[in-house]
Write a protein that binds this DNA or RNA. Structure first.
Ligand SMILES: [Zn+2]
Ligand SMILES: [Zn+2]
Ligand SMILES: [Zn+2]
Ligand SMILES: [Zn+2]
Lengths: 166, 166
DNA sequence: TTTGCGACGTTACACTATAACATCGCTTCC
DNA sequence: GGAAGCGATGTTATAGTGTAACGTCGCAAA
């Protein structure tokens, strides 16, 4: 077996039709593995932030995370949660959604990848898709202009199948 | 002849190799046309903000615009510049770069289009490319997941040909 | 003249993010 | 053991981005 638990593939927009506890649990297990493998520390705060990010498929803002942490009894200051998020970003365990100033759990931790996010403006949920085909087109286009691509932000906003009533 | 002055096509990364006064002038002329055509008012403030956005090919933040406006003698409050930007966005005269919280002049005003932005992390300049081919791929991919796409954020960060020293 | 309306002024505030420095616990090295 | 180093977190303050709410002003329609 390889070292990462593959997260179960499912449709995050299928609201009640999936066992999200399992999403959350698997994500935490995969994160433990990834950190052990990388020799970095998934400290209690970092783990708790990741758990909160995985509370749903809706990207969540840093200050919303702070409020959730406050429920635990602590009331940490902003740098605490931003440092945890920075760590999780570096380890590829969460993604930042630029168009929302929010963070969402990565569904493919441990794999080098770029992502396209489908973000429903009604329910707020986001789905992460592998951007490989699009990445190829964009890389080619960039090269045509002599541009060396490093980072890519691909975010689509619209209506998911649940919210468009189909 | 059609009603929009087509903006001159050139490479915004070719630093000193283009007459940027002309970029700026043409953009303002095209904006005048577009607003007259739409029956909306390009007021002095709106026009001045657009002119400032077009001061370079570098996306510029709202508060940087405020500082520039202050040089004119006025010192408007934030809502003034945000309202101008909102108008310019609605009219398709500027774009917002989500990954930078900044605004840049549209090089294809009056045409329905989606854009891919190439953003150089060294010189800060951005180039707007027509995203039509990529848009097609993404729309198809979204439809496969029952997702009705409405808005698209496509932003690539890297090094432009001038800054990569070639 | 009155009414309505769009644009702008003004004040205050909400939300997002980081700089700078202190503390604490652990490991390493002597 | 004690000193030094270092990563993680605590703490305080502040920077940067964006909006709500309400008032004013000028113009045009009725
Ligand atoms: Zn789930
Ligand atoms: Zn939805
Ligand atoms: Zn130019
Ligand atoms: Zn450059």
């Amino acid at each position: 077996m390889h070292s990462f638990q593959p997260l179960s593939e499912h449709d995050p927009f299928a609201c009640s039709a999936h066992d999200h506890r399992r999403c959350q649990h698997d994500a935490l297990a995969a994160a433990e593995d990834a950190c052990r493998r990388e020799g970095v520390r998934l400290t209690p705060i970092r783990k708790r932030v990741l758990e909160l990010v995985w509370a749903s498929h809706q990207p969540v803002g840093a200050y919303a995370l702070l409020e959730q942490l406050a429920v635990d009894g602590h009331r940490p200051a902003p740098p605490t949660v931003y440092r945890a998020l920075e760590f999780l970003l570096e380890q590829g365990l969460v993604h930042r959604i630029d168009s929302l100033n929010a963070f969402v759990g990565c569904t493919h931790p441990g794999e080098r990848h770029r992502s396209l996010f489908l973000i429903c403006r009604a329910c707020g949920r986001a789905q992460e898709l592998a951007a490989a085909p699009i990445e190829q087109v964009i890389t080619t286009e960039a090269q045509r202009h002599g541009f060396a691509l490093e980072k890519l932000t691909l975010e689509a906003v619209g209506l998911c199948h649940s919210c468009s009533g189909s």
